[in-house]
Amino acid sequence: MTTKQQLREGLITNNPVLVQQIGMCATMAITTSLFNGIGMGLSVLIILTCCNVVISAIRKIIPNEIRLAIFVVVIAGFVTIVDLLLQAFVPALSESLGVFIPLIVVNCIIIGRAEAFCQHEPVGLSFKDGIFQGLGYTCVLIIMCLFREFFGKGAFGGGLINTVNGVIGTGNGVQIFPAKYGALILTLPVGGFMCLGALIAVMQYALRRSAEKKEAQEKAEREAADAAEVKEAAE
């Protein structure tokens, strides 16, 4: 599998949230500000890549019966490391994500990739897979944050732009239109459910359209080839 293929898979055709439809809890819960989205996305990307590399490296010596237990231990280890590092160096992110950082342990994406991919593939491919799937996840988080922040509060870049005293994680970002004209409901749990539902629907529509187009193209090519054959046979 080439790098370009893997990138396309991670971002679009096998996107963890929109196509595989796993790892949705955190996606809906924390996408209320751009700071949260980027922070969570990068954390998951780092943890996913590290876990992929380690699990792929020890894949030959893991006994099959206890592989899930070992995956969980390795993932919990990396999650705790990232959690401690965030608490020490980016406390604002640790506070706003709250209990969802330790919950990355049970994020289906990481266990899912370990089970489906890293068990069988070498370290290099697993490393790239981690990065691209993590990128796909981060992109979805960013899109949801942008949508929910803009239409819900009329703001952009909460926690990253216009911070209070330059402390990252504070402030409400740039106010593009007054907050009272926004649909506040989008910043509530309801908004999370609906946004994600709409995004997955858009992705399904896009994938189906592209599959239909491809099929129609192939059909046209086949018919043209058949017609040329018939013409040749008639001559």
């Binding site: 409901i185 309801v190 609906m194 539902g197 709409a198 997955i200 189906r208």
Partner: peptide, 18 residues
């Protein structure tokens, strides 16, 4: 049709959450 599967479930869950 594009809402088939999870999307329509998520929207319904959203309404319940409301």
């Amino acid at each position: 049709k594009c809402f088939e599967g999870f999307p329509i479930c998520l929207v319904s869950a959203g309404l319940l959450s409301l």
